[in-house]
Amino acid sequence: MQEVTVTSWAHLQDELFEDAWNSELGRFRSRYAFRGLSDSHYQLETTLIRLGGNYAPLEPHLLRNFKKHARRSVVEQDSIWHWLSVAQHYGLPTRLLDWTYSPYVALHFATANITLFDQDGVIWAVNYLKTHQLLPRQLRKKLDEEGANVFTVEMLSAAVSSLQELMRVGRDDFALFFEPPSIDDRITNQFGFFSVMPDSTCSLNQWLAQHPHLWRRIIIPSSLKWEIRDKLDQANITERVLFPGLDGLSLWLKRQYSPKSERPALCFAGEVERSA
């Protein structure tokens, strides 16, 4: 079943860690990428897609000007994947989509915005191991050579040096996951990584619909959101940890002291554009 609606906190735990047991290792090692959204109707659309209009031709201009004005010391190497990672991290519209290895980080983003607690939330879980089995041979070979399940920016740079080359590497659409450099504590604490597709106009929803064996959707009823939010706060899964610094601290305190009976107009850095 690709979609399940949880009925309790205990049920939610079972669904978040479904298929996590690895019999070869004798350990619990989930192979899922998680992304939490506060409204179950939200699509898996990149910030570039959400620009609207004729956005695809704007991508090289956005990146060129970002590179021109950004400090060169921000990136470890002058590669497209380093630049895209940094650009996405700092809010530039890109073709990347944020994910996390942590189901609880995804759960945070699904319950961070209390103005949407009247809407069902959702956690997408995509099996990156099975997703990468569908990659073109050139890219699968690189993962096999490294004995890796997910690309690093260095590995991806060695295999594909440009977005144009990414479009030419296979005849069919595909999706891949890669880990960004540890630019700051936010990426580290959020246990984050990215997905990317060769066609910037293709929504991941569209591609996943053709491959139903790769993913699951966990629907979080609005009636459970306050309980989940309070338990995450007790477990210290908060903006204070996930967005280190005074901005994250302020967001956490603002939500902590907001009355349950009202719907204050809060704005969260992790909402929609930066959800994981």
Score class of each variant (00 low, 15 high):
L92P: 05
T115K: 12
E154H: 15
N189Y: 10
A110T: 10
R72V: 12
P103M: 00
D172P: 05
S195T: 12
L143A: 02
P180N: 12
L129S: 15
P60C: 08
A125V: 04
Q77F: 08
R186L: 05
R95N: 14
V122L: 11
Q138H: 14
R71G: 15
F178W: 13
K68F: 10
G170V: 00
L163G: 07
V153H: 06
S157H: 07
W83V: 05
R140G: 03
A158R: 04
F177L: 01
P181F: 11
F151V: 02
A70D: 04
F177A: 04
A106S: 09
I80K: 00
V169R: 03
Y104R: 10
P136S: 10
I114C: 11
E59P: 13
T188H: 12
Q77P: 06
T152E: 02
G121A: 12
L163T: 04
Y101T: 10
G91W: 04
K67E: 06
E59I: 05
H69P: 09
F177T: 00
V126W: 01
F193H: 03
K130T: 06
F191Q: 15
T152W: 00
G170C: 06
P180H: 13
D118T: 11
T111Y: 03
A110Q: 08
K130C: 07
W99C: 01
L84E: 00
D144M: 13
F174C: 07
D172L: 13
W124P: 02
T115P: 08
T100F: 07
V122S: 12
A148G: 05
K67S: 09
D185P: 14
N127M: 10
F178A: 07
